[in-house]
Computed example of a mutant assay.
Amino acid sequence: MSLPNMISTLFGHEKPSIIADSEDFLRECKHLGFNTANISDLANLPKNSIVFSFSNDAAKMTFELAKNTKNKKSVFCATQVFEPTVASALYSLKLLLSSNFENALCTQRSVLNMLNSNESFFLAGNDADARVTVFPHAQPYALLAEDVSHNFVQSVAEFFEVHYAHMNPQEPCPFSFSGTLKVAGILTVLRKPNSTLPEGLKTSLKWLSDRISEEDTFLSIEDNTVTSLKIKNEDHIKLLDLAAGPRGLKLTEFAIGVNEAIAQNIDYKINSQMNEGISGAHLAIGDGSSGYHIDFLSPAVTVTPINQRLPQQL
């Protein structure tokens, strides 16, 4: 999607400024023709902005500035919890600018209607063979056009997926998933250092991510529990179990991605938040705090209803 079309969808025909806490990144964005500002120099957010935070302090500052800004439309990219490098941020910006926001928001509405109107679904395509059931208490999260028609500060990921999350282990999971997915890439997130986790996990997960991007990889799940992650018949489930921490191999997310436009430009070796919006499906384990949150991305998968949900009796 060209920048003018992105602007018309989100920013009312006014070009956004790019805000960050990395001068090197801002310098590159200036070369691309953007107005830029270091977040530490601001008292308010610009009316229209795309924010890249390279540190937790910058992320906190973003939302503090938002509180003090009456009129704001802002897309927030939490670079620091994925891969806080200039190269990764520029890659994410490239995918963001090539995304079709209008189509993504429209598709989210269609997916939301499908999920709310049915209870069981087949997953097929790209070697997928799986089934998911969503329970009556389930509340899918979707971002719709009306949510960004006025003031907003939204994480970039929310524009490109409809998802169910299970972050509180004391509450019942909103879905039940069983089957097999072919995985093209993973994302890993740890929001702050955790001394209870084994050393070297970040390096091991980077190695695993590179392997998955290069080799056919299959993820198997039985009743919301990952049972294997195989690359050339080598199972890497022990690494996943260690990395996810106390939540272990239990699923914490089921999502449907809607960003068709990035398929030709995606690089699964880069730990970018933009990757998880790829059109298809993804699952996750871990919560990102007690252990790593690990997304398993399966592009080109279709989710099809099995049967219509019966109206609830009054």
Rank of each mutant, 00 (worst) to 15 (best):
Y91N: 00
A130T: 04
S98Y: 13
L65H: 04
P4D: 10
A243Q: 10
D210I: 11
A104V: 03
T79C: 06
Q273D: 13
R191M: 13
L143K: 08
M167R: 05
S22Y: 04
I221Q: 06
D127K: 10
V183K: 12
S272A: 15
G12S: 14
K192A: 12
A59W: 05
I7T: 14
V258T: 13
P311E: 13
G12A: 10
W207M: 04
T225Y: 07
F152H: 10
A142Y: 14
A130P: 02
S99H: 08
N113M: 06
L115S: 05
R247E: 13
T133A: 13
M274G: 14
S290H: 07
H137A: 04
S8T: 08
L208A: 10
K67P: 05
E64Q: 07
A244G: 08
S74A: 11
L187Y: 06
R211I: 03
R131G: 07
E158D: 13
C29W: 06
T304S: 15
N68D: 03
Q80L: 05
Q312T: 07
L10T: 08
P169G: 04
F121Q: 04
F160E: 00
R247Y: 15
P46R: 05
F296L: 10
H13F: 09
F76Y: 15
A87W: 01
Y141E: 10
A89T: 02
P311K: 06
D287Q: 07
S92I: 00
S176I: 10
K60I: 01
P172W: 03
L26S: 03
